[in-house]
Amino acid sequence: MYTGKIRQILLITDGCSNQGDDPIAMAALAKEQGITVNVIGVTEKDIIDEKGMTEIEGIAMSGGGVSQIVYAEALSQTVQMVTRKAMNQTIQGVVNSQLQQILGRSQSMEDLPPDKRGEVMEVVDELGETVELEVLILVDTSASMKHKLPTVKEALLDLSLSLNARSGENQFSVYVFPGKKNDVEKLLDWTPKLQSLTSIFSQLSTGGITPTGPALRTALSSFSQKKSIRSLLSRDDESYFEESI
């Protein structure tokens, strides 16, 4: 059976970074390490300015992930949808490169006739259900986010509800930026359940700068030195995929 792990950073923000490293470069760095970066821009009545939009899209693009701008009310649905979509993309990427190894360079899932594709899809679905998932959630707590934080908390609890319905294991960790002393502060260490967030979130203080770049860099180091899903590609050509092709 497939034993890979999917690693994601989920960045929830409402605007542009204004201090430290370029977040887009940090997202690219994450991608190099096999970690996908997804970004959700939360707006309310205030609209995210163009600069912020460009940055949000840029981070997700160079982080190999998904970005979405939403109103605070739709956050719950979006958080779980974005996470799932990015997870499926990663799995599809893995399956595609497996296919290429078997069928030759130019072949990908789209080149298979519809019937065969259906069989491959069953494998993808199965993986989505069973694969181990690590999500590091990075929450912007700059002043403008203050009144959106209760919604963010709801959305995160909802995310753990969705993901814990899978049979695969999940690990979550939550960081906020800016922190009390540093640019970024760990709120919750790796845990399979997010329920403990409820009490911590209400004590959060907000304010100050938006050091998105440095926050991403810290997040990266939080993923331990375990092997990423990409390195697994070269490691095991398991017979698992072959039966469906």
Partner: peptide, 21 residues
């Protein structure tokens, strides 16, 4: 036995706090 693929909040028991997905 798997996790629900797609849902709409009003009709989702998870949203109402009345069960898993």
């Amino acid at each position: 036995g798997r996790a629900i693929k797609e849902f709409t909040e009003f009709y989702d028991r998870g949203y109402w706090g009345l069960g898993s997905r």
